[in-house]
């Protein structure tokens, strides 16, 4: 999983033709539809790779 649009596992169904209503929240906090530590680690990894920590806020 390199991008948010990539599926974390088979349980994730979000594609263009089968969209998920919670997609945006899922990207950042997910997965929302199922609990899986591996899946949430995958999503976290994307965020951490370019982690914009609190210090990134200017002014």
């Amino acid at each position: 999983m390199n991008k948010f649009i990539d599926q974390c596992c088979d349980k994730c169904t979000h594609t263009r033709s089968t969209p998920c209503k919670d997609f945006i929240r899922c990207c950042v906090e997910g997965p929302v539809c199922h609990e899986d530590l591996v899946c949430s680690a995958k999503r976290k990894a994307i965020i951490e790779k370019v982690a914009l920590n609190e210090n990134f806020v200017i002014c």
Partner: peptide
């Protein structure tokens, strides 16, 4: 100047598309 303007992931990380949802 904070995000890469060519990356939708970074926009989403900074709270993007939440208001639209």
């Amino acid at each position: 100047g904070i995000i890469d303007p060519e990356s939708i992931d970074e926009y989403i990380m900074r709270g993007g598309y939440r208001a639209f949802t």
